Computed example of a mutant assay.
Amino acid sequence: MKIVSFHRDTPFTEILSDLKTKVLTKTERLPWRCYDDLSCLCVKEKIFEQHEELFRRYKAMVEENITVNVHAEGQDEIPWGVRYVGAQRLWRKGRGAGVKVAVIDTGISRDHFDLKDQIKGGIQLVRGKQNGHGTHVAGIIVAEMNQRGIVGVSPEAHLYDVRAFDHEGKSSLSTILQALQWSIANKMDVINMSFGMPQYSEAMARAVGRAHQQGIVLVASAGNGGGEAEYPARYDGVLGVSAIDQTGKLASFSARGKGVNMKAPGVDILSTWPGNQFKKLNGTSMAAPHVAGLKALEIGRKRKKA
Score class of each variant (00 low, 15 high):
residue 3 I to D: 00
residue 4 V to H: 00
residue 5 S to P: 01
residue 11 P to G: 04
residue 13 T to F: 08
residue 19 L to P: 04
residue 25 T to Q: 02
residue 27 T to R: 11
residue 28 E to T: 10
residue 29 R to T: 15
residue 30 L to T: 08
residue 31 P to C: 01
residue 31 P to W: 01
residue 33 R to H: 07
residue 41 L to H: 02
residue 42 C to A: 13
residue 43 V to H: 06
residue 43 V to L: 10
residue 54 L to Y: 07
residue 59 K to Y: 11
residue 62 V to Q: 12
residue 63 E to S: 15
residue 68 V to T: 12
residue 74 G to L: 08
residue 77 E to T: 14
residue 83 R to T: 04
residue 84 Y to L: 07
residue 92 R to C: 01
residue 93 K to A: 14
residue 93 K to M: 11
residue 96 G to P: 04
residue 100 K to T: 01
residue 104 I to F: 02
residue 107 G to L: 03
residue 109 S to Q: 04
residue 110 R to K: 12
residue 111 D to L: 09
residue 113 F to D: 03
residue 114 D to W: 01
residue 116 K to E: 12
residue 117 D to E: 15
residue 117 D to M: 09
residue 119 I to R: 10
residue 122 G to V: 11
residue 123 I to N: 03
residue 131 N to R: 09
residue 134 G to P: 13
residue 135 T to G: 04
residue 136 H to G: 05
residue 139 G to E: 09
residue 142 V to G: 12
residue 145 M to A: 04
residue 146 N to H: 03
residue 148 R to K: 14
residue 152 G to K: 06
residue 152 G to M: 07
residue 160 Y to S: 07
residue 161 D to P: 09
residue 163 R to I: 06
residue 164 A to N: 09
residue 167 H to T: 06
residue 168 E to G: 12
residue 170 K to P: 05
residue 170 K to C: 14
residue 174 S to G: 06
residue 183 S to D: 04
residue 185 A to K: 14
residue 191 I to D: 04
residue 191 I to A: 04
residue 191 I to Q: 05
residue 192 N to Q: 15
residue 194 S to K: 09
residue 195 F to K: 09
residue 195 F to V: 10
residue 196 G to I: 13
residue 203 A to H: 13
residue 204 M to K: 14
residue 205 A to K: 15
residue 209 G to H: 14
residue 210 R to H: 13
residue 212 H to D: 12
residue 215 G to W: 06
residue 219 V to Y: 07
residue 220 A to E: 04
residue 229 A to G: 12
residue 233 A to G: 14
residue 236 D to G: 12
residue 237 G to H: 08
residue 237 G to K: 11
residue 240 G to I: 05
residue 242 S to F: 02
residue 245 D to M: 09
residue 245 D to H: 11
residue 247 T to Q: 15
residue 252 S to I: 07
residue 252 S to W: 08
residue 255 A to W: 02
residue 258 K to I: 11
residue 264 A to I: 04
residue 265 P to E: 00
residue 267 V to H: 00
residue 272 T to F: 02
residue 273 W to L: 03
residue 273 W to H: 06
residue 274 P to M: 01
residue 274 P to C: 03
residue 275 G to Y: 00
residue 275 G to V: 00
residue 278 F to I: 02
residue 281 L to S: 01
residue 282 N to F: 00
residue 284 T to E: 05
residue 285 S to M: 02
residue 286 M to C: 13
residue 287 A to T: 06
residue 290 H to Y: 06
residue 292 A to W: 04
residue 292 A to N: 05
residue 295 K to E: 07
residue 297 L to I: 06
residue 298 E to F: 01
residue 298 E to T: 03
residue 298 E to D: 03
residue 306 A to S: 11
residue 306 A to N: 12
